[in-house]
Design a binder for these strands. Structure first.
Lengths: 328, 328
DNA sequence: CTGTTAGCGCTTTCAG
DNA sequence: CTGAAAGCGCTAACAG
């Protein structure tokens, strides 16, 4: 059987309270006593059982990370994988553990905390119903939204609107007059913001983004491909396109090339996110870079603040930057 | 304050044991009583606190997943991301939770279990010291190795030797006579097995794999690129190359093309793993497919067996298949 | 069928 | 400075 605090106590000839004090690095323990306890721990190969401690203190040092995405398993998403990487990093630095929740069943989100499995929740992604967000906000538990925002919840997100603007300006500067926007879907709030920023900057410059130049191709790896084809079929070929994300941009390039159009000579293409693949593609993809790692690590930091009783910054919006490569 | 089992009991006018029975779906509870308890739970918005339960039963329903890889954060590795996806899937189906451990500090591996945080451990990857494996084996805890194997531990791995053979046969059939092998490093046990299988099949056919045709280029994204250059500098250009994995194959192609060689016309290139990117590359990569998802889900299944007291298959070795595409 | 009771391993007053 | 004792919320005999 595993050694418990009692075994250590009796071996060191002290009370269990003293062992606990030593283990928790409290002061007011005589050096000699401390040594004796430590020796007993070593002899017995003792490791504290956190369940007992958690039951008493109400904290587990586990952080739940729930990712919302239509595509399962979520971990395969090249964007969120990096976000999780950032979270992982920050949590490890703080000595916390990461409990990953895939959440096919959405309803058990807050239960992770109610069951005492985790101290707080990092909810990543914006594919989550308002009702669920409302429930999270009302739960009173420490929750931080990442890559999403909602009234009443601490959040770390991206300035998608500004990113769309950046893309428009880049295209405009190259002399584009027939812009297009392709995406997997047009419901994703982030995508919509990107589109709106794009449209707004275009209009400011007197360039119209026609509705025939906006298309969604479906939530698969080829969404961008089909969206692009739809645009090509609907009217004259665009001379500049912004894709809602990099995978869409990459597959849009394929559709363009299949139609006999050259990138960037005939049409300039800009992606969004700057996933690792973007730099490796042929042609290398010009894209609006999202700070994925920071999204994750800052989100974790906010949650850590919340747990520590520090009032964190409520709403954090990270700026994007345009990374100019070959495709535009 | 959160409602506890006591609150539910008194509200339903029963003992706490009865509440526990209802919650655990035990029989021998009168229907009327059960209804009363359930109603009380609903009224109070009661959710069971798993800490108490775990302390008593000694099980948490949390499974630790530790990934060993030189490259952090691990989640970014396109190979392991899929393996984790498989694990995630299987664990969720079993109602278990996934505790991800990045493990910069290797020594706390088994402590995750000793602390009572997890019921068992899935250790993924082969970049782990024998001493650590030995400790895991001796710990007596439920542990399963994934993509690795070790005497005395249950494991699910890949038949890398056979995969290397498959690649050799494919190259041989195309008439190759000057084979090469490129990798990020030559220490990785999986890579070595791939190399050995490759070499063995080549020799059986009377084709020699010269030491100048074997190179490592370093553990970065460009490892394959540098390895390939090294081979090209060391002697006559090969006419067929096997890379230790797909990223290496892809970047080896770049090196080849930069040297004015065409793939597959001048030299055929075969990758290993069949990551998602392989099919999308230009030219599409011929590769030895590793069952990544199965590696994960089977590994999880074995651990679940172990936890359920079922004697699992000790050693599982998954076969590979050759996926012929354009590059060879 | 149901209630009482005794802990699981730990932290934390409260008295020495 | 240290020990005794009281639970944290739950499960599992053991009696009814």
């Amino acid at each position: 059987m595993r050694a418990t605090i009692k075994d250590v106590a009796s071996r060191a000839n002290v009370g269990i309270a003293t062992v606990s004090r030593v283990l928790n690095g409290e002061e007011y323990v005589a050096d000699a006593t401390r040594e004796r306890v430590l020796a007993a721990c070593r002899d017995l190969g003792y490791t504290r059982n956190n369940l007992g401690r958690s039951l008493k203190t109400g904290a587990t040092d586990n952080i739940g990370v729930a990712i919302m995405s239509r595509h399962a398993p979520v971990i395969l998403n090249p964007f969120y994988a990096v976000v999780i990487g950032g979270i992982e990093q920050a949590l490890e630095d703080a000595g916390k553990h990461l409990l990953l929740s895939s959440l096919r069943r959405r309803d058990d989100l807050i239960d992770l905390a109610r069951e005492g499995r985790v101290d707080g929740l990092l909810v990543v992604g914006c594919d989550i119903a308002d009702a669920e967000l409302q429930r999270l906000a009302e739960s009173g538990r420490p929750v931080v939204l990442v890559d999403n925002e909602y009234q009443g919840l601490t959040s770390v997100s991206t300035d998608n609107h500004q990113g769309g603007r950046l893309a428009a300006e880049h295209l405009l500067a190259a002399g584009c007059t027939r812009p297009a926007f392709v995406a997997e879907n047009l419901e994703n709030p982030n995508f919509r913001q990107r589109l709106e920023g794009f449209r707004a900057a275009l209009e400011t410059a007197g360039v119209q983004l026609h509705s025939t130049g906006i298309a969604a191709g479906g939530d698969s790896w080829d969404g961008g491909y089909y969206a692009m084809r739809r645009v090509l079929e609907a009217g004259p070929a665009p001379d500049g396109v912004l894709a809602a994300n990099d995978p869409a941009a990459l597959s849009a390039c394929r559709a363009l090339q299949q139609a006999g159009l050259r990138v960037p000579d005939d049409v300039r293409v800009i992606g969004f996110d700057d996933i690792h693949l973007a730099a490796q593609a042929e042609p290398a993809l010009t894209t609006v870079k999202v700070e994925k790692l920071e999204l994750g690590s800052l989100g974790a930091t906010r949650l850590l603040d919340l747990l520590a009783g520090v009032e964190p910054q409520r709403r954090t919006v990270l700026p994007t930057t345009l990374v100019a490569r070959a495709s535009a």
